[in-house]
């Protein structure tokens, strides 16, 4: 790890903070995957890692390499853009297929296709 010794203190502190906060948020998202008790709630958990986690850790990596190697072409931007564009698509398709399966089995209380059942608290005037 010889190259990391060249990192000055003013850059090392934000890099460490970004890394630790990003990884802790990702861990909380994965814990949510374990703790939440039904599939539709669990659908929200990985978004934590995919939004905040990816952005913070990529920022840390960009800052580290920009200071160390004086390289101002940020290819981590590619990962951020790609993950932010694709994760919603995956989750939307997964939610749709889960809804479809639950409707066919009819065991879970999911809203029906023809007439969406209004939930007790969140109602809509239409």
């Amino acid at each position: 790890m010889s190259h990391l010794t060249d990192l000055p203190l003013w850059a090392a502190i934000p890099v460490c903070i970004l890394l630790l906060v990003g990884s802790i948020i990702t861990l909380i998202g994965s814990i949510g995957l374990l703790r939440l008790n039904n599939f539709y709630s669990r659908l929200h958990a990985p978004t934590l890692g995919a939004s905040a986690g990816v952005v913070l850790i990529s920022l840390a990596s960009m800052l580290c390499f920009a200071v160390l190697q004086n390289r101002w072409i940020f290819h981590e931007v590619l990962i951020v853009v790609f993950i932010i564009l694709t994760t919603p698509v995956t989750l939307m398709l997964l939610g749709q297929s889960a809804l479809y399966r639950d409707r066919i089995e009819g065991t879970h209380d999911v809203p029906l296709k023809e007439k969406p059942v209004p939930t007790p608290t969140g109602t809509d005037p239409d």
Binding site: G95, P111, P116
Partner: peptide, 25 residues
């Protein structure tokens, strides 16, 4: 869908009704 609290599940283009799942209602 990118917002962690809400997930887009289904959109019916005939009736224009969107079914959204919300974590903390």
């Amino acid at each position: 869908t990118a917002t962690p609290g809400s997930a887009w599940l289904e959109f019916d283009s005939q009736t224009q009704v969107l079914l959204l799942h919300v974590l903390d209602i």
